[in-house]
């Protein structure tokens, strides 16, 4: 099964009935012109990208936005309508005094598959001790975390919070916590590789396309900035396919992964096998 672990459903028609909320999402995600898409289009896009299931990410920056841009209930509702096509990830704002109760509800009641956190946008360092209870709850529920890492195009983000070495203490102190550095920590790819090499609970996704075409950029990033052999020999079980849809197109990202010169078995792991281990469902 091929899985895209990094999909933003912000412009799925199913949750776009409120024009004011759609405008908030456009600003919050800084995706300004993407069309609202009916679910039929979404499924066709997934089919053309050879994606069987997508992880839909909620987005809660309540401290700055005043409300979640995409709520846990919304991603749960889409998942419930199409359980064969979607996983759903929770979002909480660590600045919200009720964030632990929200996470408990997301796992216990909404049965969400993991948690998305954004250190740069939510302004926390991953090793901050106030994050410990969140990590402990994820371990208790055996749920992974997808951390934004590296550059973010969203407004009011500082990349420094999401620099890969800031995640090492979490990897070390919570060895049972599976977490993924989204965007491979770009541009700090070698720092991400360093963490992955040492900590088997650290994964990285491929959701990066900041210059050039998908094929060109992923070739530069995953076969030159870090040599192809690093992934194909050593990190092949910790790389997850992620597209960051709709900022980047699933179809082109998915096709590019198969063109990088990895072993077929490595491509299969990246496209889905590793995500199944990561999600553990």
């Amino acid at each position: 099964m091929n899985i895209d672990v990094h999909v933003h459903p912000d412009f799925y028609e199913r949750i776009c009935g409120d024009a004011e909320l759609v405008a908030l999402r456009r600003h919050s995600l800084h995706i300004l012109q993407s069309a609202v898409k009916p679910i039929e289009t979404v499924f066709l896009q997934m089919r053309n990208a050879e994606i069987d299931k997508s992880c839909l990410l909620a987005r809660d920056y309540s401290a700055s936005d005043g409300r979640p841009a995409v709520s846990n209930e919304e991603v749960a509702a889409i998942r419930d309508m199409y359980p064969d096509r979607f996983f759903a990830f929770a979002s909480i704002d660590p600045s919200d005094p009720n964030h632990l109760a929200s996470l408990e509800y997301a796992y216990a009641e909404l049965r969400l598959s993991g948690l998305k956190l954004h250190p740069g946008r939510q302004r926390f360092y991953p090793a901050d001790r106030r994050m410990d209870k969140i990590y402990e709850m994820c371990v208790a529920y055996d749920k992974p975390i997808l951390f934004h890492s590296g550059l973010s195009f969203e407004p009011d983000c500082l990349s420094e919070y999401a620099r890969p070495p800031h995640f090492e203490e979490t990897a070390s102190r919570f060895p049972k916590l599976r977490f993924c550095l989204a965007h491979f920590g770009w541009p700090w790819l070698r720092e991400t590789a360093m963490l992955m090499l040492k900590y088997p609970n650290v994964y990285a996704d491929t959701a990066m396309l900041y210059f050039d075409s998908a094929r060109e950029f992923l070739e530069t990033s995953l076969t030159k900035d870090i040599p192809r052999t690093w992934i194909d020999r050593s990190l092949r079980r910790q790389v997850l396919f992620g597209s960051d849809y709709p900022r980047f197109e699933q179809m082109r990202m998915s096709a590019a992964i198969a063109q990088l010169g990895f072993r077929d078995s490595t491509v299969e792991l990246i496209r889905g096998g590793n995500a199944a281990e990561f999600l553990a469902e």
Binding site: L29, I31, L32, S34, Y210, F211, D212, S213, R215, R247
Partner: peptide
């Protein structure tokens, strides 16, 4: 797979041109 110029981040879209 030609080296097209329309393959770059478009700030006014917040998306990377791929088409």
């Amino acid at each position: 797979n030609d080296p097209y110029l329309h393959a770059r981040m478009l700030p006014t879209y917040g998306q990377t041109a791929g088409n």
